[in-house]
Nucleic acid binder design. Structure first.
Lengths: 136, 136
DNA sequence: TCTTGACTTGGACTCCGTCCATCGTAGGAT
DNA sequence: ATCCTACGATGGACGGAGTCCAAGTCAAGA
């Protein structure tokens, strides 16, 4: 976790109280929070932090590759601090809960050349949907 | 296309001018339109159609399984009339273009039971990302 | 300590979508 | 053919998520 702060400092981040708090909130739990949840948790430690700052900081963390953005069907985006181990997501269609999963197989291999239409395909994203134990 | 209207009638749809127009707009092109685009095209034929009606109708078509909803990273949802042949999407990371693709394999089988966390998994969505020929 | 440009603030704004009270009408009943 | 009524349409208000901006603040290098 101070790992994260360390890496950020090395990349020339100006270290402010706000950024520190946002990074710590994300680094704490391995849950996928929405921007507003991050804001609420950050505000517990730093009451005057603004929503705009949380959005800015999350955006920066995403473009630095420290955090993944997971957008779920029409709901608010969630931020996934587990950016280093590759994984896919299992989403509850009812309450929106997300779990990380590690499927076997390689979906990239399942897309034949003639189905690529000249695209340079670099990434595959697999989302499993269903009902979680509480909603099922 | 009158196929579609036929099927809808059979399912007890009350056939109104608005619904007919929305169904025809979707059925015409095989492009993935946003709700507002559908509204604009529908309004060419039926100037007074309201946004709410377009949203309602699209929602009904989706829950009847006649149309698929494709939500793209933070932007407006798009509606995919090609609901009968199952397919996945190939998205250009740069310009947002979407192509339908038909990968081989069955990703559902790639998620072992111990990675399901008690969820009832019913659906898998695979999105391939990369650069299209014009952006590559 | 001073300076400065990067960062933060918060409120207005936009975009996408939903809600709701009211009005209109498709289509079965007569 | 006409009437009835429940289903559908309307449009304006509303709500959530996210962005923008002008003004104020402050981290950190000189």
């Amino acid at each position: 976790m101070s790992d994260l702060l360390e890496r950020l400092r090395e990349r020339g981040w100006r270290m402010t109280a706000q950024r520190r708090v946002v990074a710590q909130v994300l680094d704490g739990d391995h849950v996928h929070l929405t921007a507003d949840e991050v804001h609420a948790l950050a505000a517990e430690r730093l009451p005057e932090i603004s929503r705009a700052t949380v959005y800015n900081t999350l955006g920066e963390l995403v473009s630095l590759g420290e955090v993944l953005e997971v957008s779920t069907e029409g709901r608010a985006k969630r931020y996934d601090p587990n950016a280093h181990r590759p994984h896919q997501h299992l989403v509850c269609s009812d309450c929106g809960t997300i779990r990380d999963v590690h499927p076997t197989g390689n979906p990239l291999a399942d897309l034949p050349a003639e189905e690529r239409f000249g695209f340079t395909v670099s990434e595959v994203e697999v989302t499993y949907r269903g009902l979680c134990p509480s909603c099922g």
